[in-house]
Nucleic acid binder design. Structure first.
Lengths: 230, 230
DNA sequence: GATCGTCGACCGAACGTCCGTTCGGTCAAC
DNA sequence: GTTGACCGAACGGACGTTCGGTCGACGATC
């Protein structure tokens, strides 16, 4: 069961010392687990956590109902695993993309782009992460909260630096600004349609532009000032 | 049952022609209905629609389980009524506050202030409206969608006018801008804490400021331009 | 190299619980 | 005597979970 081998969960690559046979077995075990998780993610994204039954996950994944409990010891642990992996992956992706970027505004651009692109590439997973936060309780909830907290602090620090460097007199609360940005990003799953709407990169640019300069934009203000001066 | 008297649902005030007795009876009936709806709203906001059982609503409202079905003929109708009333009230409130306001930017300010203040005054109801959209299906969902659509179009028209008048060259998509604004507003229920965070009016001002001018703000740009000019 | 015991992957069938809903009725008010 | 508000008790189904078992792969033993 997954909760008896937590040290394996996020280290798919194992030392080469292991036997070939064991490696192959482990591969099929992990493949199967990933397959069930992917199916569960899609179903929970479609119907919500409570309505997505273990029977439906089993049928869709091509496994028996009891067979699922070979991989997770409860439905809640399954949801936890989906959220934990996704949040970890999101945070890791962000840290990776931020590597070597120093300028605060550029950091913000990288952050929004990374988030939007990750979202577009993993819509069901991010929907489950945005929408089913409170479906976990107790220690499982606390554990995901810790990762989310890291993601929040990383983002808030970027926002803070952007403000401190480029708009030190700005009266906007850093926390409010960060949560407003998260609102724009986390609400995407309610309306973004990859078939109709623009590309993830284009969308990210619009969000960056709006967050930094608002819908009125700086150029307009420059024009206004220049017009007033002449 | 509620679905047999739909013409009464949103007209609490009745003509004075009715007898006093009937009026008092109707009052207690409506009071009881409103009480059950309020309890259900709180419970659904706390636990989610699926987890909030009719038994829990009955117990909390001080009525028997079967007694609830004197007011609603199904749990889904109950949720529908909560959402329908809230969306209608939200839309009516917005239209009322917009009355007589012509300037687009001022309209936007009114819209955000109205939304944030309504949210702060009805947090459970707006959480249910934001979070349980997809818990309705079929005709009930379609009916709420129509009201939300009106709210969206009203807001998008304001955003469009703001852009057309004050930033005609702005490349930001009107739909994206409107949904970004909705994201900031609809995400509030995830983090806003009336005890800790600033007042609803102050929060609304920050959101307006961010949406119009971004975190960098126009003054900074003016400063920059002025500094560059001198 | 055949035999045996072990183990991991997996399954059919059930168990107990909780849920939304309904049925048949009571009782006060008119 | 009718009606509207309301209730206790039950119904049927869906759900998460568990139990007891099968089966093939594998290492050890002869």
């Amino acid at each position: 069961m997954i909760n008896k081998k937590p040290e394996r969960m996020f280290e798919p690559d194992q030392p080469a010392a292991a036997e070939n046979r064991t490696s192959e077995l482990r591969e099929t075990y992990d493949d199967r687990l990933n397959h069930i998780l992917a199916v569960a993610t899609t179903l929970i994204a479609q119907s919500g956590y409570e309505r997505a039954s273990m029977r439906a996950v089993a049928k869709e994944a091509g496994i028996s109902l009891a067979g699922i409990y070979h991989y997770f010891d409860s439905k809640e642990k399954m949801l936890f695993l989906i959220q934990f992996r996704t949040f970890n992956s999101l945070l890791g992706n962000l840290r990776e993309k931020l590597h070597g970027v120093e300028e605060p505004v550029e950091q913000l651009r990288v952050m929004v782009r990374a988030h939007v692109c990750y979202f577009a590439a993993n819509m069901p997973a991010l929907k489950v992460c945005s929408h089913e936060l409170e479906s976990l309780a107790g220690p499982a909830y606390e554990q995901t909260r810790l990762i989310r907290r890291q993601y929040y602090e990383l983002s808030r620090d970027i926002v803070t630096r952007v403000l401190d460097v480029h708009a030190p007199d700005c009266a906007i609360d850093r926390h409010v600004a960060t949560m407003a940005l998260f609102g724009m990003l986390n609400w995407l799953y309610r309306w973004y349609n990859p078939a109709k709407d623009r590309s993830p990169a284009g969308l990210a640019n619009q969000i960056i532009e709006m967050f930094l300069n608002g819908v009125l934009g700086p150029k307009v203000e420059e024009d206004r000032v220049e017009r007033a001066a002449s």
